[in-house]
Design a protein around this nucleic acid. Structure first.
Lengths: 218, 218
DNA sequence: TTTAGATTGTGAATGATGTAACATTTCCGT
DNA sequence: ACGGAAATGTTACATCATTCACAATCTAAA
């Protein structure tokens, strides 16, 4: 919330978690220093872009030397609020939901899936990836202290559940359903539409020159 | 490949599948006409942006009237090469891979997952969502006629499999692993990194004003 | 047929992002 | 201690994308 961070471009903010993970890798490999050029090859982002991104946070590197891995790491840890974890709920324990629960989010991350909900009676009471599953009817009872929801339910259910999440004071939603949900402007929604991603890739392949293009961020 | 399509901005191209799906919805609801304003509310994209996007394809609408749903639909069907399906392979039938296989991609889409591969012996020979599963060792035998691969394998395996896919003449890869794979510039790669998406959402929540912002595309 | 109302398509303004290029500074071997 | 090599931080530019605002045009109803 400080003034400095308020000015960081969204495109940069989206790359921060990526940088963080690779810096973390370097650190566990015992590497002491890294240049923007090396980092560029690893994360597939132009080195000038990396330097620009880092510069929003001040002078993190040293000219002629590069960046100190340890320092970068501790800086990113602090900046990405690594220590203060955000509590997440997952709604819809289907295939996609299960994938998320099994994904090891606690490692190197500032987020933790605390609880999951599902409509099918079979799964209630189980834990998947260490996360307990409750019935969706009990959403309001258990959602206290949760600020972000991952929505992996069938498309028809999306808006209804979104409404309940809003009432329960959620701050952000990661929406994996094809439905575009409507929420108050105080709630942030990111849409990730798997079918659209695949179709867009196919469209690019058919209509854009294949050669000399760098691969894209999503 | 025609000259007209070559000039369409990438940002627009990414929205086309989204438009297509919603126009399809309208059509099955029996709606005859639609304005950019209505469409805007449904897909959460500014109405001027929608009009601009459509205008790259010529004058699809009529002033004072809006767009004819039937006409729009047939136009998008043609433009997105709805009739000529792209064959897709899925590598890695874990939770995330299974989610993809069960997702109904044949409905309203120009893509079809023809075959899946996995390293675990248990699943070989099964079909999931109508898609047969082969062993990853047999990749090269079965990949003929496949132009796109969905990569849902563990991160360590990603680069090795990418190399094999490139040798097998793949055109595009949808990479769901955290690894950033290296491929020749003739191959298009889109990265979708679930952990990064979640972290980025959390970062935005903590550092950007909550109110008055429109929700984001991913 | 005329008119009021609606909505497109687009020129122009604005904003956001990416990248080339280089002066500046630091490192490090001799 | 010095000079060359290296790599940052940033200025300037180029590109891409979004949005405003409105003339042009159409519909539909009286």
């Amino acid at each position: 919330m400080d003034i400095e961070n308020a000015k960081i471009p969204q495109a940069t903010a989206k790359r921060l978690p990526l940088y963080y993970r690779f810096i973390n890798n370097l650190h566990s490999q015992g590497k002491m220093r890294v240049s923007s050029k090396e980092l560029s090859e690893a994360v597939k982002v132009d080195s000038a872009t990396i330097r620009r991104d880092f510069s929003y946070f001040g002078a993190l590197g040293k000219k002629g030397y590069g960046y100190n891995v340890e320092y970068l790491l501790s800086f990113f840890r602090k900046t990405l609020d690594q220590d203060e974890t955000t509590n997440v709920a997952l709604i819809g324990v289907g295939n996609l939901g299960t994938a998320f629960l099994n994904y090891n989010f606690t490692k190197n991350n500032n987020t933790k899936i605390q609880i999951a909900f599902d409509a099918s009676d079979d799964r209630i009471g189980d834990t998947v990836g260490g996360v307990p599953i409750k019935h969706i009817d009990e959403l309001e009872e258990y959602i206290d202290g949760i600020s972000v929801a991952i929505l992996t339910v069938p498309a028809q259910a999306a808006q209804g559940i979104a409404d309940r999440l809003v009432k329960a004071n959620i701050s952000g939603v990661l929406n994996f359903t094809p439905a575009r949900i409507t929420v108050p402007s105080s709630v942030r929604v990111h849409h990730i539409d798997l079918a659209v991603e695949l179709q867009a890739l196919v469209y690019f392949l058919k209509h854009y020159p294949l050669d000399g293009e760098l691969e894209d961020e999503l």
